[in-house]
Design a protein around this nucleic acid. Sequence first.
RNA 1: GCGGAUGUGGCGGAAUUGGCAGACGCACCAGACUUAGGAUCUGGCGGUUUAUCCGUGGGGGUUCGAGUCCCUUCAUCCGCACCA
Length: 825
Amino acid sequence: MDIRYDFKAIEAKWQKYWEENNFYQVKEDSQKPKYYNLEMFPYPSGNLHMGHVRNYAIGDVVARFKTMKGYNVLHPMGWDAFGLPAENAAIKHGHHPAKWTYDNIANMKRQLKSLGISYDWTREIATCKPDYYKFTQWMFLKLYEHGLAYKKYSAVNWCPSCQTVLANEQVVEGKCERCEATVEKKQLEQWFFKITAYAQRLLDDLELLSGWPEKVKTMQRNWIGRSEGCQFSMQVEETGDEIPVFTTRPDTVFGVTYMVLAPEHPLVEKISQGKPQEKEVKAFVERMKYLNEITRTSNETEKEGVFTGAYAINPMNGEKVPIWIANYVLMEYGTGAIMAVPAHDQRDFEFARKYNLPIKVVIKGEDSPATAEEMTAAYTGDGVMINSGSFDGLTVEEGKKAVIAYMEEKGIGKGTVNYRLRDWLISRQRYWGAPIPIIYCENCDIVPVPEKDLPVLLPENVEFKPNGESPLKYVEEFYKTTCPNCGREARRETDTMDTFVCSSWYFNRYCSPHETEVPFDKKAVDYWMPVDQYIGGVEHAILHLMYARFFTKFLYDIGMLSCVEPFTNLLTQGMVLKDGSKMSKSKGNVVSPEEIINKYGADTARLFILFASPPEKDLEWSDQGVEGCYRFLNRVWRTVTSYADKIASVDLPDKSEVFDREAKKLHYKTHATIKKVTEDIEERFNFNTAVSAIMELSNTLNDYAHGETQNLKVIKEAINAMLLLLSPFCPHICEELWHLIGNQNSIHLERWPEYDPEALIQEEIEIVIQINGKVRDKINVAPDIGEEELKQKVTEHPRIKELTKDKKIVKIIVVPQKLVNIVVK
RNA sequence: GCGGAUGUGGCGGAAUUGGCAGACGCACCAGACUUAGGAUCUGGCGGUUUAUCCGUGGGGGUUCGAGUCCCUUCAUCCGCACCA
């Protein structure tokens, strides 16, 4: 048989065949173990990029491998379809976001299909479709019902150039991600989800995630930012106002020499009123307002502040200390006010030195300075309490507990836990998102839309404002409604939800994507969830993965789910680089997947991406590397087609078969490769080494094919194994060749090959001989050779004898099956 | 500043439990076939003074033996960054 490797025809043929035969459609099946394999769904931006290809190629290998291993594999795909770019396209070019989005989905779906990924397309979802966002709104209502969705005034990011609010994640280093204008703060009324209510569980349950990268868990831990300490109040001397402060160092409370409020603190105006400093305080507060958060809170920014003119009383010792306001205290964290202990806090120390505030040492370490004069920096190490009344002599750890206990006993304060995690701001003044299902009634105030009225449909006929304002505010038939409570005229909420809300529960929807009454069927999620393997970029380490965990815990609490964590195993793939940096239009180093597929085929593109680097590491794109993979597939094609007719009716070797030396070599290699590839995929996800092992098998097979004898049974065995092992990586070419060598059924319905341990038993093994740890020679021996016999053989080996003749053998170390090391003097 | 990761040929990367450093691929070199080769096949390919010695960012250590373990140091990348 001599036909050329026509990848275009082959790939089109099998893609059509798989699609027409619903090849990858799955149903719940209690007879088989389930495996839910999921790749993060894409935003339909228009075209697939290499990062997508990498993500889905990795996922497809896992899905196809697990299927061949006998699992019932759920492998779905969908679209994270709401979002800003669609709306920007509408503003700029006049396309409706819906049309823009659906066109992009169609195009990207076509591209995905051309990659030959084994998705069950009957489960496809798009978050912008009413049948989906109906349930995103349902999620909102449930959270609201449980007191976990609420509204409050809050400062948000405002881009003066785009004339719009931005999500936190769209602010990069204080600047607008798109136009690079400096982002300002603006006060607006916003909807929040109370993720902070789950802070401790989100932190604790990271322990359950042994299948997650440490890096991601660490990032989440930092993001949650738990710290233990205590909260107590300092009383303002004149007005009697209580100002709560949070500290992790209650043991240093006797070292307080001043206190600091954030400039935005609500008591600032009151306590400075009528004071000589009033004007200065007001000017400082005004100035801080106009600084963006990054410059204000950067470590490089010098600490500055002003005295308010007021004093507060330290409840532990009755001492009177001045109240300052300063840039280094943030309203968002803790209580927005601190007790300042310059001797034992570096920030307070710098501030105190700058403004000549007193410094009082209350912790004495072994080599730490005992007086403020000697200090060049705050002392933050271990030690014992001094100058602290009856607490003197306690260690830092004992002191913390003792002071908290004392405060609790006297009713001064209490031990508390503080988190850096803040509630999740989910409202967006945007059109292209799921409308928040809330109605405002003058009579009944805030009224949730009744479940039976869902979905609150996004009106299609809207006009986009060039200034970026949400068009929903101007669509009367949308916002004008009646109150579900009292029936009077009322107004709908015109804000929509953050797209991260849509993606926080989508993995459940895939389990029963056509449900119309509930977001997902309980039986279906109980069968499929949790996701066994989740694969995506590390850029979602915190936001998406934290929100999804939060939603899962909430859905568990209300009895919708039986699992507390959504993703058992997480693989964060590396980026695809070109010339050492991320592919981007501005750098002009973008390689288009479509071009590569046209030039070399999907199998080559997939193979290269899996071969070039282990999945979690960054991958450097190389056109020549792609060529290499293309050549390899051509070699496979030539080898297999040249034997296709010859092996079609040949049997596989049976157990008792006796091979000659060369045939044995190939037989051994076949089984060693099955073992290696299986372990590489199953245990380590080392697809790069799995591919190189298959290449080695191909090389050995070619060597044998060029040799003198031809045992067709062994050749057939090798070809079968090679195609089966390669089929998750390169599904099209393997399918075609599988049929060409005489098989009637799809290779993708075959079971994963198993190696025969007997094939791995060798008559002779090579033993390395070292002298003083340096390799000097190698000998072949029987694998079951005894240690004494081996020692003898080695020492009698001519070359070794020669090299050791004038030396004294001190010791001989034998590593069974591997090496012998002769230690000489 | 804190936390994490990574440093191996000209390049991407192997070395899984402390046991042959450089698998596999790219690039390169030589040869074969050929009217031709950016096709294919064969061979070579860390350095070197080539039966030797050196070599996994640098320095030190443990060990019969270290890319792998320990100490120290440098570089690059990523995340967080006045978190009270």
